[in-house]
Computed example of a mutant assay.
Amino acid sequence: MHSVGMEEHLDGTSEKLTAIGTIVAVFLIGCLSLYLMSNLSAEKKKQHLEELVSQLIHSLIQKVYDENAIE
């Protein structure tokens, strides 16, 4: 009976990892699109990408913190 609880925990963890992986993949596709299609200078592109990465990391950390605070 204890193993069922562990399986449920692993299912929840894999769902979270899948969601995070999807977000990261979409983000990377967006960054690549911005870099290839934008008419901005290389410096501006770099600034935009740095800001986007910073916001993504902050959002992921906040989401993990919020979920752990609830449990």
Rank of each mutant, 00 (worst) to 15 (best):
M1V: 13
H2I: 11
H2C: 03
H2A: 14
S3V: 12
S3I: 13
S3A: 11
V4F: 13
M6T: 12
M6Q: 09
M6S: 04
E7T: 07
E7N: 05
E7C: 02
E8K: 14
E8H: 11
H9F: 13
H9Y: 09
L10A: 03
L10R: 09
D11N: 13
G12R: 14
T13K: 08
T13E: 07
T13N: 04
S14W: 07
S14H: 06
S14R: 10
S14N: 11
S14I: 12
E15C: 02
K16Y: 12
K16L: 13
T18K: 12
T18I: 04
T18W: 04
A19R: 11
I20Y: 07
I20C: 03
G21V: 02
T22W: 03
V24R: 03
V24H: 05
A25N: 11
A25C: 00
V26W: 00
V26D: 11
V26N: 07
F27I: 00
L28M: 13
L28C: 05
I29G: 00
I29N: 02
I29K: 11
G30P: 01
G30S: 14
C31D: 08
C31V: 15
C31Q: 14
L32A: 15
L32F: 10
L32H: 01
S33D: 05
S33I: 13
L34S: 05
L34F: 15
L34G: 01
M37A: 10
M37C: 08
S38H: 10
L40K: 15
L40T: 01
S41L: 07
S41W: 07
E43M: 07
E43R: 09
K44R: 15
K44I: 13
K45E: 05
K45T: 06
K46E: 15
K46Y: 08
Q47H: 06
Q47Y: 05
H48W: 09
H48V: 15
L49I: 15
E50V: 09
E50Y: 06
E50Q: 12
E50F: 07
E50R: 08
L52E: 05
V53A: 11
V53K: 10
V53E: 09
Q55G: 01
Q55R: 14
L56D: 00
I57M: 07
H58W: 04
H58F: 07
H58T: 14
H58Y: 06
S59N: 10
S59H: 08
S59L: 06
L60H: 01
I61Y: 05
I61E: 15
I61W: 04
Q62T: 10
Q62C: 02
K63E: 14
Y65R: 06
E67M: 06
A69L: 10
A69V: 06
A69S: 09
I70W: 00
E71Q: 03
E71F: 00
